[in-house]
Design a protein around this nucleic acid. Sequence first.
DNA 1: GACGATACGGAACAGCGTTCCGCTTGTCAG
DNA 2: CTGACAAGCGGAACGCTGTTCCGTATCGTC
Lengths: 189, 189
Amino acid sequence: MPARNTDSPAPRKRADAERNKQALLEAAAAAFVDAGVNAPVRDIAARAGVGLGTIYRHFPARADLIVAVYRHQVQACAEAAPALLATSPTPHDALTAWVDLFVDFLITKHGLAEAMHSDAAAFEPLHAYFLEHLIPAVTLLLDAAVTAGEITPIDPLTLLRGIGNLCIGADPRYDPRPLTTILIKGLRT
Amino acid sequence: MPARNTDSPAPRKRADAERNKQALLEAAAAAFVDAGVNAPVRDIAARAGVGLGTIYRHFPARADLIVAVYRHQVQACAEAAPALLATSPTPHDALTAWVDLFVDFLITKHGLAEAMHSDAAAFEPLHAYFLEHLIPAVTLLLDAAVTAGEITPIDPLTLLRGIGNLCIGADPRYDPRPLTTILIKGLRT
DNA sequence: GACGATACGGAACAGCGTTCCGCTTGTCAG
DNA sequence: CTGACAAGCGGAACGCTGTTCCGTATCGTC
């Protein structure tokens, strides 16, 4: 067995492959901004100056591309939870602030919330990725608020789903924030 | 000339046309139950023993078929509002009961809530039909509750949209009722 | 029974995500 | 430097949508 210890069993990718992957990520990010996360795969490929085969080599399904594009932002969102809890006057304030943050993230990604709830198996990775990272974040905030006696207990997944659902809507004139605010208000004891 | 004066300048449809239209409505209703409102047009046509052309003759777009299938139920939902207001102890109770009714309607029509918020122009008639009939209903309930000092004012369309959004979800294990309950609770003064 | 309007059926079109495979190209041993 | 081979690429093709179109069959009437 080769003496590779802990890091990178990487078979070392070809230079052009890595270059194309980056071009694809940038093209996808741009396409998502212009046309929402439902931007046709062909458009993304064209933007990146790449063939259809290439896009599917790097990202087996559409959802993988979406995950790759938003990975950093989801992580940032998750990491904001403990920070907010530490700096906010009360756990409920932290929760409110975090929800605002999450809503801001969602509404700027037209179609992301919709895609999250698609029944298509292809979007399962997306769904799983979001939950895996965000459930711990909301759980932390909710537990703190419950312990402080500020809110009644609620399943974190349910809340996350509710907020996500409220952010669905192609219409850019639609602002879900009044609704999310009411929802959070409804949690108070 | 038969004594029909103002109403129905109807060119009197052919018998087979009317028969097919009914068959289509029944087939669509059945298909929607089995496969959700996104059941393929071809499946519905096949169920009705009818060609694709026929379906589009009677229902120019998918959305028209959906509207036709659920027309009665939407109307019943709208008409329940004044009845509930008259029989409930408080306007807030009536509002709660009506929301439950609306949610029951939505969750049994897999995909209906999703379709409502589709950005596709084809679904605009569906959207319009729902709003036209349900906005007056919620407005009635909200006004009564506001007047009674039970809730803070909210735009009826916003509330309707919020409830509709919360009911989105292909997963039959997902129950939106806890969330709609919290939302209504959040309206209280 | 024949004729004309009406309605039907399904092939065809456009657009989607995804698969597949012949060809190109980067990489590295010699 | 050069060849060979695996890794990667491009885009035609597939299967699935909703929708359109038009030659043909059927209904109602005279």
